[in-house]
């Protein structure tokens, strides 16, 4: 479904069409997994299918089902051209919404982004991880993946200021690295068979207010999918500390990989930023 998210839902004209709505989703392995409230909508929409590649259901402000459609998503028909797929999806969306009275939404010069975030207290209270990909044939990756990982005491302890140069294990930052995989490859149980590597961790200068350190090294990833996708990531993280104490204050990091997906090899670039700053 990532090509739907990237090439169709995120098509600029589709975004404008969808702006009046409160958007939400349910996705599961089978319709048997549906919770009661989703099942009620599914029944009211008369979808009656054992498998839903994609269905769109419009509900009014009181939660009553107004319309539904199972849009036809046909990447091969459009020669895997994301622009053609986007235009086709937009036309199906227009048909679904034709004649409905929707609230007017003021078109902003710069629409506000709401990215996944960490809601707890603390600096840092966690990290936000952006994954972007080079284009692939099925157009899976045209919209970045954004994940968040809360800070834990284990992470804080492992990343406290190093007085001397040393090493840490990739397992010390496993919580972050578990997000470093592309969508549409987890065809197994999910998760990783292996995340391994030795990372250098060394002081890296200071200024009047802060001290810095750097974590760098190569990480080996093996996914727990049927193909046992294996790839290496080059991780570099700059860490910032207040001059008093050894507690981590903020981070900025990158990880670069080339990930196998079927016959393709896809470049994956990861940016890691601490939150709230």
């Amino acid at each position: 479904m990532d090509h739907v998210r990237g090439s169709s839902l995120a098509w600029p004209e589709s975004l404008e069409t969808l702006r009046p709505f409160v958007m939400t989703w349910w996705s599961g392995r089978t319709i048997k997994d549906m919770p009661d409230d989703i099942r009620a909508v599914f029944n009211d929409a008369n979808l009656r299918q054992p498998h839903i590649n994609l269905a769109l259901v419009v509900l009014d402000s009181k939660g009553k089902v107004l319309r539904s459609v199972v849009p036809s998503i046909r990447p091969p028909e459009f020669r895997f051209d994301p622009e053609a797929q986007g235009r086709d999806f937009k036309s199906q969306l227009d048909n679904l919404l034709a004649g409905l009275k929707l609230p007017k939404v003021e078109k902003l010069a710069k629409p506000k982004l709401t990215l996944p975030d960490i809601c707890s207290e603390g600096q840092p209270n966690g990290v936000r991880i952006f994954l972007t990909f080079a284009a692939n044939r099925l157009n899976h990756y045209r919209t970045p993946i954004v994940e968040t990982v809360p800070m834990t005491e284990e992470l804080r302890k492992a990343l406290s200021y190093p007085k001397n140069a040393g090493t840490i294990s990739a397992s010390n930052v496993r919580a972050w690295l578990e997000q470093v995989y592309p969508a549409a490859v987890m065809d197994g149980k999910g998760g990783f068979r292996k995340i391994d590597g030795k990372l250098t961790f060394a002081p890296a200068g200071a200024d009047d207010a802060y001290r810095y350190a750097v974590v760098e090294g190569e990480v080996e990833f093996v996914l727990d999918n049927e193909g046992r996708s294996t790839y290496k990531g080059s991780l570099s993280v700059a860490l910032k500390y207040r001059r008093e104490g050894n507690a981590l204050y903020s981070i900025r990091g990158v990880c670069e990989s080339v990930v196998p997906k079927g016959p393709e090899k896809i470049r994956m670039t990861v940016a890691i930023e601490s939150r709230p700053e």
């Binding site: 989703w25 349910w26 599961g28 392995r29 989703i38 590649n53």
Partner: peptide
């Protein structure tokens, strides 16, 4: 405001 609900099943994972 209206709601747009997206439904999807994927046998390997949601």
């Amino acid at each position: 405001r209206p709601i747009l609900l997206i439904l999807n099943t994927n046998i390997t994972a949601g």
